[in-house]
Amino acid sequence: MSAQTPYDFIGGEQAIRSLVDRFYFYMDILPEAQGIRAMHQPNLNSAKDKLFKFLSGWLGGPNLYIQEFGHPMLRMRHFPFKIGEAERDQWMLCMNKALAEVPMDPRLHTNITNALQQLATHMINQETESPSTADDRS
């Protein structure tokens, strides 16, 4: 008998598909997420498929993404996109709303949320712009 994984505890394939559908639903409708929505193709089917396959393996289920595309190399694959703190926060806003709709143990929810926050922060490839102090002359 094998140990259960987060994938099993949240409901397997059906729960992951629902999570991904809700994530992209929020990305599509939330004005606060339009920055990251603009980075995607008009049709989200390919993005949905890839996120589903990635999350499946990441949560301990079948390694569908690796089987089809090889190692995720997420940071490298996202490097063509300008990702700063604002984009990370928009992504997490959509993911947090989607996660809130998937029934799961509160501790598992916290662990998954924290892990996704770390992953999203790892995707940042742009420096945060700070106000210039060069023009502040007294």
Rank of each mutant, 00 (worst) to 15 (best):
D21K: 15
D21E: 13
D21V: 14
R22G: 05
R22M: 09
R22N: 11
F23K: 00
F23E: 02
F23C: 01
Y24R: 00
Y24T: 00
F25Q: 11
F25K: 06
F25V: 03
Y26C: 05
Y26N: 10
Y26R: 04
Y26K: 04
M27P: 03
M27Y: 07
M27D: 02
D28S: 10
D28C: 07
D28V: 03
D28I: 03
I29P: 04
I29E: 04
I29T: 10
L30N: 03
L30P: 01
L30G: 03
L30H: 02
P31D: 13
P31Q: 14
P31F: 15
E32S: 12
E32R: 14
E32T: 11
E32I: 14
A33E: 09
A33Q: 09
A33V: 08
A33P: 12
A33H: 11
Q34L: 11
Q34I: 11
Q34E: 10
G35I: 07
G35D: 11
G35R: 08
G35Y: 10
I36C: 04
R37I: 05
R37K: 15
A38Q: 12
A38T: 15
A38P: 09
A38H: 11
M39V: 15
M39W: 11
M39G: 07
M39R: 14
H40M: 02
H40D: 03
H40I: 02
Q41Y: 15
Q41P: 05
P42R: 05
P42T: 07
P42A: 10
P42Y: 14
N43V: 11
N43P: 10
L44W: 08
L44S: 05
L44C: 06
L44Q: 07
L44H: 10
L44D: 05
N45V: 07
S46C: 10
S46F: 13
S46L: 15
S46A: 13
S46G: 13
A47K: 04
A47Q: 05
A47T: 07
A47L: 06
K48T: 04
K48C: 03
K48I: 02
K48F: 01
K48G: 01
D49Y: 07
D49K: 10
D49Q: 12
D49M: 10
D49V: 09
K50D: 06
K50R: 15
K50M: 13
L51W: 02
L51V: 11
L51S: 05
F52C: 07
F52L: 06
K53D: 01
K53Y: 03
K53T: 04
F54G: 01
F54L: 02
F54V: 01
L55A: 01
L55H: 01
L55S: 02
L55P: 02
S56V: 07
S56R: 08
G57F: 00
G57S: 04
G57V: 03
W58S: 06
W58G: 06
W58R: 09
W58N: 07
L59E: 12
L59W: 14
L59D: 08
L59V: 15
L59Y: 14
G60L: 10
G60V: 04
G60T: 05
G60Y: 15
P62A: 08
P62K: 05
N63Y: 11
